[in-house]
Design a protein around this nucleic acid. Structure first.
Lengths: 252, 252
DNA sequence: TGACGTCATTGAGTGGCCTCAAAGTCGTAT
DNA sequence: ATACGACTTTGAGGCCACTCAATGACGTCA
């Protein structure tokens, strides 16, 4: 390899040139500061579908940003089945929950071919000492994650199958929209099985709800391709006070 | 009032003299550093049962540590009912999830007479700039909260009523134990209704499970007083890989 | 292109937990 | 001490989502 510090492999984009930077980086960082962050970020080869980014119990060393593709995190239940805890789409950050135990509490696996930016945590901490804004960004990220998890707890303890799936679809739509993609029409990166696992439903229930939604003109689904046909009704099913919902409606 | 800076009202204990400090403060802070933290902490009058510490939507200004008593946090569902998101016991910190929205995403209410230490967030951030260890402590707290919430999601999506209640009791026992109290015998600060609300179960189900557990010699419960009679079996019902469980067994 | 494995769909039947209803118990305040 | 309200317990019945089972569709690889 003849690569010099500033020569990246093809497909390796610097943070300052990354279209996702406004989503995953604190806005207040100056260009020079971003370059400093850029220097500590490791960009590995793409992960193929099924490959693991880290395993439950692995020593906690880094947090990760998804550049393209999709990642799921999961943990093992007592009976040894997998319980999916989160899906991560491009620009989203994972690995923050390992910080206080020094091991990752979940496994992270690619659901499709996935590009990842790795941020070694000790270097991130060093950099945090210098840039208060970066540190606040990290804390905000974690705070947001806590709120999202609590929304999820609400879904799991109070919503029925229809509401869970409506909520899930609206949430995905909102995340696609945030990255500049269509919020009406997108491709699910997870199987019905994974969706059910995440939402606390049996596969068959997921399938039945999809069929019913389609029959009622709420969505149009062919395999993993989803089109949201009636966002207003889907949002009202999803309930919730989230601002996201209104945004989806307004752009539909 | 004739109080001078270092004269506290009765019952107002300085951090360095607080029996809970080893639980709620980072261990690495020196005595002088602790005194600096101590100076920014506000100790209000005790909250009576039912009083609110903050309401959902209130501007986010502070994080709080419970000194005595108990706090529940809750949010409103779409139908306007309350959904309890957490219970906080002495030495535990709440309010961290409002950090990225500038408003509290939940309401916090005293379940019994409760003493609180209030830590204004802007001053905490200033202090964090100076003490990296304090900052890491905050992040570890949030990371821990994320892991706990994920355990809760697992409970809600995979466990049946028996397992949920066993898990809940074991978890409480472990938290009492951590503060030096008995993990076999304690007093619940929440009603059956609140427990069910939190665990995603109807009150009647909670009551039935309690009765059954008692019949089977797992627990002995009179009103809110709980005695764990068969911690081993209760833990095995609770399942989970948490180290807490083993500790409960070993001290039972 | 055909065969295979994986994933998705659909149906039938069951069971766990919820809802509704009523009686019993506890705590508190007058 | 007594009465009231709030909480808890217990029972009966119903529903939603699960399990089990079989068929159908898709994608992949030889």
């Amino acid at each position: 390899m003849t690569s010099k510090p500033n020569v990246r492999q093809p497909g390796h984009v610097a943070c300052r040139d990354c279209s996702l930077s406004s989503l995953c980086l604190p806005l207040a960082l100056s260009l020079q500061d971003i370059d400093q962050l850029d220097r500590i970020i490791k960009r590995g080869r793409p992960l193929k579908k099924g490959e693991h980014l880290f395993l439950e119990g692995d020593p906690f060393t880094s947090v990760f940003a998804v550049r393209s593709g999709a990642i799921k995190t999961y943990t093992a239940t007592n009976e040894g089945e997998e319980q999916i805890t989160s899906f991560y789409l491009p620009s989203e950050i994972l690995g923050l929950s390992g910080m206080d135990t020094d091991v990752y509490p979940v496994s992270a696996q690619a659901m499709e071919t996935t590009m990842i930016c790795e941020i070694p945590f000790d270097q991130l901490e060093t950099l945090s000492d210098r840039f208060p804004e970066l540190r606040r960004h990290m804390m905000r990220l974690m705070s947001k994650k806590i709120r999202e998890d609590q929304q999820m707890m609400m879904l799991l303890s109070k919503k029925n199958a229809d509401e869970r799936i409506a909520t899930f679809l609206i949430n995905l739509a909102s995340r696609f929209r945030r990255r500049g993609f269509s919020s009406q029409s997108f491709r699910l990166s997870m199987s019905r099985n994974e969706m059910g696992n995440y939402l606390g439903l049996a596969v068959e229930t997921v399938s039945r709800v999809f069929t019913r939604f389609q029959k009622n003109g709420l969505i149009f689904a062919v395999g993993k391709e989803i089109e949201i046909r009636d966002p207003v009704q889907l949002c009202s099913l999803a309930g919730g006070k989230s601002v996201d919902l209104e945004q989806i409606i307004s752009t539909a």
